[in-house]
Nucleic acid binder design. Structure first.
Lengths: 351, 351
DNA sequence: TTGTATGCGTTATCAC
DNA sequence: GTGATAACGCATACAA
């Protein structure tokens, strides 16, 4: 029943050469006579031979695989990053293994182990533990253990005390540009919604946000900083809370685009005129250009980000020097959702 | 320089057992004495041993890998499908290799070849050539060649003359439910936008669309069927064309959700009241619940779809019988974008 | 330019 | 329970 696998030995036999020669044409060794190369290739075609990559990996001690752990590929921020990396890696002859951790530490551990077993040549890590201000001891030591065996690159995150290649977009600067933009539109009452304390991408933004408020001499209302989470519904929750407060902000910054989508939705549910507020998101994922109003947001510069990732990977694999920390400039994309303080707002309020 | 890889031989040596025994604890063979198993495990820990999956694959002649080709993971329709398959496969001990073909036949070929070389145990195929009404001879024979070596499942597509497992959502029925819904709201002038002729998922829908119009005794205006493409901008193009026509429809069905996003955007650009039209999409991807107006659309029943995919894969691998063709029921999700014919529309027109 | 022999790190088949 | 030994399919050092 078991169909015999066709190997270079079978090809060698029918082509009247040694397995070595077959192997040579496989690896593109130029020392083979054209006529024999041609004959071998013909026989391969004939017998429908396909080299076994596992065997190859075993002898060459390299797999041409790269591992990529991220929280959730259904989030356009990650899918846009991933797809570019996949394409650029393929051009270099590498294959990417994608794993969705859902930010679960257990999943991350399982996938890290798998990657080591499969002998990937480099691991790209996003989200989860590398965004925790206080990762657990286990998470840190595990990371170090893995890094003894496989080089690892952290994207938009890091771990205190874990020395490692780091590539991240300059989220602080992104946040500063948002505040600057809003202030220049006349806003003085600015809220920040979404995210979660203890997550570095959040803490980073909040810190920059507060510093910037101070710089412009604006008051920092703690009740306007609502750490409700990262999803659409979390944005709704935050907006609901804002709408229920006595004094309301005139501008709302989201931890990411998603929470702003939720905020917009909540306004509609409550029949609050959407232009009462200016909204600004973060990430510039594709729906931000189609929601209404289209969303002002910070673009991560995906092309540069992914280029740096792949370049760093290749340098590490080729044992070339490469910059340990890379910071990517962001770009503020101004769309309809941010505007001068709306006077209708004040008119429409009973005051 | 080259750091020696740690193998079961190293473990065997320090644990005073044979490599065979080490292998036994690795495979979970129960015939090992508890004390020696414990000793071996300890030594593995100590030397930071990790089994080499390539070597394993080689001897066991199985890789525990599944290949997944789809057009574009940044499209939420695909990412939602993929992520569920990944998770369910992982639960069964399988790893999914994702490849984005961008619907390019060359990419598809390259990835198919790679999958065969990596000896994946099953291939899931979406988009591209399996949605062509007339795939090329090369595409068909290549598919057959691959299928001699690796079982293949086509999802939401098929190939005439290529006998193969097929799982698809019932798009015809989905389209019928849309037309029924619109007609029951009083619409008689219905357009279809997006897609491309010669793509089966499009032809299928258009056919059902026309049959349904006929069934309700409605006229079929060919100029209201605009095959502009699959993306957001393609939807804008189609909408522009509709808005420029003498007689306009009252309802617009999209090939997918994306083109409707474009249509909504175009209306806003031209300051056309959005409620002049009823809009219905197809796919129910996540932004459809957050755009304004929220989009009535057809849901693919992702959970059932992905369950069927994984079940079929496992049955094929385990050489169990499995249904050759599976059809998944769709579900019409009614949101704000579909409503009765808007009277304001007629009032606002100069007529 | 080609062939022989050996190794890569496991598992599987025997024997003991 | 445990241990030799032979696969698995390819690449490479060395010979010729």
């Amino acid at each position: 029943m078991k169909k015999k696998n066709i190997t270079i030995y079978d090809i060698a036999k029918v082509a009247n050469v040694s397995p070595t020669t077959v192997s040579r044409v496989l690896t593109g060794n130029p020392l083979v006579k054209d006529s024999t190369r041609k004959r071998v290739l013909e026989k391969m075609e004939e017998l429908e031979f396909t080299p076994n990559e596992a065997a190859r990996s075993l002898t060459r001690n390299q797999t041409n695989m790269i591992g990529f752990i991220l929280p959730d590929i259904t989030n356009p921020f990650f899918s846009q990053t991933y797809i570019d990396v996949e394409r650029k890696a393929f051009e270099k002859g590498y294959t990417v293994l994608l794993r969705n951790s859902m930010s679960s530490s257990e999943m991350e551990s399982a996938y890290l182990r798998e990657f080591v077993e499969r002998r990937v040549e480099c691991i790209v890590f996003m989200g989860g533990r590398i965004n925790k201000s206080k990762p657990t001891e286990k998470e840190m030591t595990e990371m170090k253990e893995v890094m003894k065996r496989v080089p690892l690159i952290m994207v938009n995150g890091w771990m205190e005390g874990v020395d490692c290649h780091t590539i991240r977009t300059d989220e602080e600067e992104g946040m500063r540009s948002i505040v600057h933009h809003l202030v220049s539109l006349g806003h003085r009452d600015i809220a920040f919604i979404g995210g979660q304390k203890g997550v570095s991408t959040v803490d980073l933004k909040v810190l920059a946000f507060r510093e910037e408020l101070k710089k412009y001499g604006l008051e920092c209302h703690n009740e306007w900083q609502i750490y409700s989470g990262f999803g659409i519904d979390d944005g709704r929750v935050a907006m609901r809370q804002l709408l229920a407060s006595k004094k309301m902000p005139t501008a709302i910054i989201g931890m990411n685009d998603m929470v702003i989508y939720g905020a917009l939705k909540e306004c509609r549910k409550q029949n609050v005129p959407i232009h009462n507020f200016s909204f600004v998101g973060f990430d510039d994922i594709f729906p931000s250009d189609i929601v209404y109003p289209s969303l002002t947001t910070v673009n991560h510069n995906y092309d540069q980000l992914t280029s740096e990732i792949i370049e760093t990977i290749m340098k590490i694999i080729d044992r070339k020097d490469s910059q340990k920390e890379i910071l990517i400039e962001t770009k503020l994309i101004i769309r309809e959702s941010s505007h001068t303080v709306n006077e209708h707002y004040f008119n429409s309020k009973e005051m």
